[in-house]
Design a binder for these strands. Structure first.
Lengths: 402, 402
DNA sequence: GCCACTTTGTTCGAGACTAAATTTAGTGAG
DNA sequence: CTCACTAAATTTAGTCTCGAACAAAGTGGC
């Protein structure tokens, strides 16, 4: 039993102010106080110090709305950027982003996670990215398809990569010399939503990804819910039928085995929607061409996803569901089946829940990973020691690094 | 976006020390510091004040274990008790408990939630209980089968009671004049587990109840996860089949429709395990008598529950599952089906999760509700203004009330 | 121009908590 | 008995944040 609501805060507010000005742009002191839920007095104190240290500056005043006009505060210079990397079974996608989330560079490097020295290879790839990064680097965020036990250890269980209890966090930290935050890939998307996306209006929501697999991140009260071993949100392995196709996890009848990429393709091949050697792209094109059998594959997948997600919504009670992942590009084909099944299966009280489909770009996974770093100024509890390092770096003068 | 990890703590520690000494019994300052995760300095300060105010006292020293011997601190007198009430569709169960969880009185009053003045009737019942309470009363906890939007408003949605957006919390507060905490009934069981039960060792766990319905409470990092509208944990309405029996929620094929009490009885009647006018007790007796058809009903229910819970475990990643509710009395009959199905459906990484079956007594629901009050000294964030009132009352000298 | 009102931002004092150093009170080895 | 060691408790000198009162800088009605 821990006294919740009581945790060491360090100088969280200082970092949060800088983070807020970076991610949201110029804001008044009163706005900062409201957004961070701290008292105006604290903001005055904090900004006074940051002004003295010339990390922030007073910009123009904004016209009054009936009271004293607000003075906008802004960062003196780019307070820093972050590197984000998404690890997959065959490549690592890397982006370098600014504090406001704009992507500066984006690239992809082949990667074999099953190689004996995979971790060394990953270190190397990231070391290059760190070296190539221009400007003040706050840290590196890494997202991967698996459970990350605790941020402190960065211990990773990722069956699809063939990684079991691999101390990814610690090893990368040792190799890179900058703060490294590691988390489940879907959780990183949620972190991005918290800082830049729908999380700004919704304290509790869910991110659901469709693509190779099916994933989910649960955000409660503004922070990502990780479960006892960092494995929360594994909805891809919810059993949806008594028997069913085999799944990569070793069981049969998992949701993912039906509506994950491989499952879709297998179903499509079986029903003749695509040929025996067809791929997800073949299926997508067939659907786009209006081929009924292909449309039916997606519609069935939508139904099954809808039914299962209804159960997850009942369990978690999110205020919003955000759909992401490669698969949403074909969402129009999932949608009819999904909506029909999802809404119908929800309890009446939940039936009105909003489902938002985000447009998807290739580097979104990596941007999410970078958001892990950019979100850490706002989340003292979750990010642990590495987050503290990020917060410390946020306050060091950028020019020192240049 | 809120600065998590930063919340007003008020005078949390003082109340938490009193709460800890009440719920755990005498402890040394060092123990208190470790358990509450505050610094020893704080405990020294806090206890000094509480000693001066004669709320606590130094008991004996315990033998040294190689260092300075610890001095046990204890409450000077019973710091107070709480009243817990569980509201059901036909009665209200009420207990009065001491700070250490011992039940002092326990009774049950008929109640009709669908009556026009149901809330007034409930107020009256509780007013009587408050009047009858002997000693210092910290507050009243109320558990009911439904979603409680926010502790602040105490706005209740409880379809099985026929209550929709009913301001139970506010109305009871106005009527009773003592702090009133309202929550979902399963959440109250979780609160009890946090303070007295398995939550002491597990920061993240799940309580699953079987009985009239099927419920679930999710505890993450030591506090109950309530979702966006206080409706988290409604696993009874997870759809488990494409069609299926109708459920009270209006849908068909909900888990509860199969393994809730009514579902079990209906299945049993259909398969001939019991007669057409049989009840859950008939079924239970038939199983106890070894009647194969009855055993099969339970086994099937266990299988379905196991399969569904596997999905919930994948979603939530709890460190432990605690099974409670009236239904666990017959758990021996569920067990074979459950274990087989649950373990098999779990991902290999989760397969080792512990499932604990708590023994069940009739007043446990009400004791849970009372725990809501007794847990509030430890949980600043969740309990809001009412929790603050409880903490304040904890520090007022009991004799003033007598 | 004056006054009521609104909103922003500041000052000040106080409270809660902490880290670090220190004191206290024991154990156990020689 | 003395000395090294350990763990508990305390003291000290802070840091962080807040509430409350107040000052500042506008709007809008008259």
């Amino acid at each position: 039993m821990v006294l919740s609501g009581l945790s060491p805060r360090g100088d969280l507010v200082r970092a949060a102010v800088l983070g807020l000005l970076g991610t949201r742009g110029a804001s008044s002191r009163a706005d900062i106080a409201r957004m961070l839920r701290v008292s105006p007095a604290t903001v005055t104190q904090t900004t006074k110090e940051l002004l003295q240290r010339e990390l922030i500056t007073e910009l123009r005043s904004v016209p009054s709305t009936g009271g004293r006009p607000a003075i906008l505060l802004g960062l003196v210079r780019a307070a820093g950027g972050a590197i984000g990397a998404k690890v997959t079974a065959d490549h690592v996608a890397i982006v370098s982003v600014d504090l406001d989330g704009t992507v500066r560079t984006s690239r992809s490097v082949p990667f074999d996670p099953s190689a004996p020295a995979a971790l060394e290879a990953l270190s190397g790839i990231l070391r290059d990215a760190v070296a190539a990064h221009d400007g003040h680097l706050l840290g590196v965020g890494v997202g991967l398809p698996g459970a990350v036990d605790a941020q402190a250890s960065g211990l990773v269980d990722a069956p699809t990569l063939g990684w079991g209890r691999l101390p990814v966090g610690r090893r990368l930290r040792d190799a890179l010399g900058v703060p490294v935050l590691v988390d489940n890939d879907v959780n990183t998307l949620a972190a991005a939503q918290i800082v830049y996306g729908n999380g700004r209006e919704h304290p509790s929501f869910m991110v659901v990804t469709i693509g190779l697999g099916v994933g989910c991140a649960i955000v409660q009260q503004g922070s990502v819910s990780r479960g006892a071993h960092g494995g929360a949100g594994e909805i891809g392995h919810i059993p949806v039928s008594a028997d069913g196709p085999p799944c990569g996890c070793g069981n049969t009848g998992c949701l993912e085995a039906y509506v994950g990429e491989a499952g879709l393709v297998a179903t499509a091949a079986r029903t003749g929607a695509i040929g025996q050697r067809g791929t997800i792209d073949t299926l997508s094109r067939a659907a786009r061409a209006g081929k009924p059998a292909a449309l039916e594959v997606y519609r069935d997948a939508g139904r099954l996803l809808g039914r299962t997600l209804a159960g997850v919504v009942h369990t978690v009670d999110p205020g919003l569901v955000v759909l992401m992942g490669e698969g949403v590009r074909d969402w129009e084909f999932w949608e009819t089946g999904f909506e029909e099944s999802f809404r119908q299966r929800l309890m009446p009280a939940r039936r009105g829940i909003r489902c938002l489909v985000e447009s998807w770009t290739e580097d979104q996974w990596a941007v999410g990973a970078a958001s892990l770093v950019l979100a850490s100024p706002f989340d003292a509890a979750a990010t642990g020691a590495q987050g503290e390092l990020v917060r410390a770096r946020l306050q060091t003068a950028p020019e020192v690094d240049r």
